[in-house]
Design a protein around this nucleic acid. Structure first.
Lengths: 239, 239
DNA sequence: GGTAATATTTAACCGATGTTAAATTAAGAT
DNA sequence: ATCTTAATTTAACATCGGTTAAATATTACC
């Protein structure tokens, strides 16, 4: 599987390390249950793998508490994520995959491309910094830009917003969002926000759509002023 | 791993079936040793896998004799080979991989692309029939054109030849052959053929090269007449 | 602070794919 | 036809990543 100056790890190891990386963005330490849920295995399997990864110095494991990646572990995770996001963008740009298809295909390929392949698509895409969902692509050296935007669900009626990022892991949601005209870097306006966790009324490309809070949680946005709105819309005229 | 209307097989199974397919082009039945040599495992491992594959009805296994793919086995093999050769061509055309690099990369990816991916690169390449080494790409339905050309080593002094195919599995050889100007569909002339299994003196693009029999065994050619030679050379002027 | 509920780990086991060493079969030479 | 040799198979075992069931910590509630 992936290398880059280090040992070679199995696909299983790469996958565990990747999801641990993502989980530890949220939590101080990653618990056995959280990990096994995401990996769709039993907690027992997660425990065993955690011990093995600790053995390989990819993470620090405190029994009954949880797990945290080491430097080395983060490097492995970021390499896998780099592959994933470069692949997503490549599949989208070069092969015409849609928003909702890229994740699944990249998921399989990310463990099997060579550094040569990585370099070539990176060059072909002109060294991109974000994937089709707005996620930052880690550099070859292992640094990542911070995630952008706050949840759309936290916006208020009257806000004018730019879409900076959407969650990549729910094809259904992505298909639906694409269907109502939601695009990266596109402008949306919150017309109403229903109480009791009710839906948001969004204006997208002049059309109104009602979007529930759960779905809104998949979208990350940035507020802009009315004047900014004009410039952005001018740039996307003709969509 | 690969599917297409059938069960899903492990990478190991796909690899075994693929090399059995290739070996049985030459021999009536594929022997344990031949198989284990190509798979870089011990004969014991090959025996066990042969039994397992027989169990799955991918081949017929006669102990102490050898193995032969069933219909189902051939279908699996051809699907893998189709992936391999489409990938080789795609890597060459779309990503600029050279003759000698494509095999190794395709070797890894062939087990992990979806049918969606297969279809997209097939379309993008405009439904090609041969890979960069001149090998036929099996159709989606599982038919393959026959191999073209006879070994260059069997040509005689004075022959004018078109290069139809080169073995894909020896990067060193491929690099060398590319270096002396050998190209698919290119014209070469045999100026001399040394006795005692000695080298051939080849004229390629006006330059003479001495090529040993072993290397010549990697190249497959077709004899053409002098008049054909003119038309072909006209078509490749400017190389 | 003790106990019930929950999370975690351990133990025993499984299937896939490999190994080495021993047993067995087939094939070739005399 | 027998015997030696080479090929093949079998047996016992290893590793990886998973499972289920039982044992054990931790946490949370009264």
């Amino acid at each position: 599987m992936g290398d880059r100056g280090g040992r070679v790890f199995s696909q299983a190891v790469e996958d565990y390390v990747k999801v641990i990386y993502k989980l530890q963005q949220e939590e101080e330490a990653v618990s056995t249950t959280a990990l096994s849920r995401r990996m769709k295995t039993t907690p027992a399997a997660a425990t065993k793998m955690m011990k093995a990864l600790a053995e390989s110095r990819l993470l620090d494991y405190t029994p009954y508490y949880g797990v945290r990646l080491t430097e080395a572990g983060e490097r492995v995770a970021l390499e896998v994520i780099r592959h994933h996001r470069l692949l997503e963008l490549y599949l989208h740009q070069a092969l015409g995959y849609s928003w909702d298809e890229v994740d699944a295909e990249a998921e399989k390929l990310e463990h099997h491309i060579s550094e040569e392949f990585e370099d070539r698509i990176d060059r072909m895409l002109d060294y991109p910094v974000r994937d089709p969902h707005g996620d930052p692509i880690p550099t070859r050296e292992g640094t990542v830009a911070p995630q952008r935007g706050e949840p759309l669900a936290e916006s208020e009626a009257g806000d004018t917003l730019i879409v900076l990022r959407v969650r990549d892991n729910d094809p259904e949601a992505l298909r639906y969002l694409a269907g109502i005209g939601m695009r990266l870097e596109g402008v949306i306006t919150v017309r109403e926000k229903q109480p009791f966790n009710g839906p948001l009324l969004l204006e997208i490309g002049g059309i109104m759509h009602s979007v529930g809070r759960e779905l809104a949680g998949h979208v990350f946005v940035e507020r802009i002023s009315e004047t900014e709105r004009e410039t952005v819309l001018a740039g996307t005229a003709g969509w």
